Simulated assay, not measured.
Amino acid sequence: MPTGVAIRDVREQLFSAAERILLRDGPNALTSRALTTEAGCAKGVLHRHFADFDAFLAEFVLDRVHRMDSQAAALRDAAGTGTIAGNLTEALTSLFGSVAVAVVALITFRDGLRDRLRQTWPAGVPVLTEAATMIAGYLAAERGLGRLAPEADVETLAPTLIGAGHLLFADRKGTPPEPGAVEKMVTTVLGGAARDARP
């Protein structure tokens, strides 16, 4: 039985295969058979490392959520540079242009996965709640710098931006929205709260 690095490599191989299937074919296509075929391994490999398929999916979702940490750090570092609307447009486009939209659909689609996630993630949809936290942190930083109105309610603005952004990108098979459409949505949601200088 593989141990140490070998296990990590198998897990990453399976996670990468799951992401490819989700991006290419959508959540309905992500089955244990499709996964092991895509990963090029025997079905027994999956069951050696995970209790069942929903356990695998839960770990996959949480792994993808933790990968958002670098995005959150980059967005926080952008505070005070560029424009707030431009920074948020870039962050939302990056977020929803990734596997995030398909992961949200996967969580919605599978009751067993939602039940499994509740054990470690008690409220909300992991990808969306983490994204809202990321946006709220950025907006709070901009408010601290005086580029966002002091009365701006970042805890309301952040989930509103995530929800509106998700709706723009939700059609997985359609053409992604143009950056201008995303920025228009961001500007509308922020209203007069943004006080940053325009280029």
Rank of each mutant, 00 (worst) to 15 (best):
L88S: 07
R64H: 11
N87M: 05
R20I: 06
T129C: 02
S32A: 12
A18Y: 11
G26T: 07
N28S: 15
E90P: 00
D54W: 00
A105P: 00
E90Q: 14
I21M: 02
A58P: 10
V101L: 09
G86L: 00
L128Y: 01
G137N: 03
L106D: 01
V45M: 07
G97M: 06
G40F: 11
A131Y: 11
L30V: 13
L23V: 15
L62N: 03
T36K: 10
T156Y: 04
D69L: 04
T108L: 03
M134G: 05
G80Q: 03
F60I: 11
T81D: 13
D54P: 03
A149E: 12
G137A: 08
A74C: 04
T129P: 01
L128S: 12
A141T: 09
G40Q: 12
V104L: 10
R64E: 13
G26C: 01
L22P: 06
R33M: 13
T93F: 02
V99T: 12
S16E: 15
L157Y: 12
S98T: 08
E38P: 04
A131P: 05
L128K: 14
F96W: 13
L46A: 00
R118Y: 08
E142W: 05
A18M: 10
A91D: 07
G86Q: 01
R24A: 15
Q119I: 12
L14V: 15
E38M: 14
F50M: 05
A42R: 13
G44L: 00
A149G: 02
A79C: 02
A18G: 14
A152G: 04
R143M: 10
L139M: 08
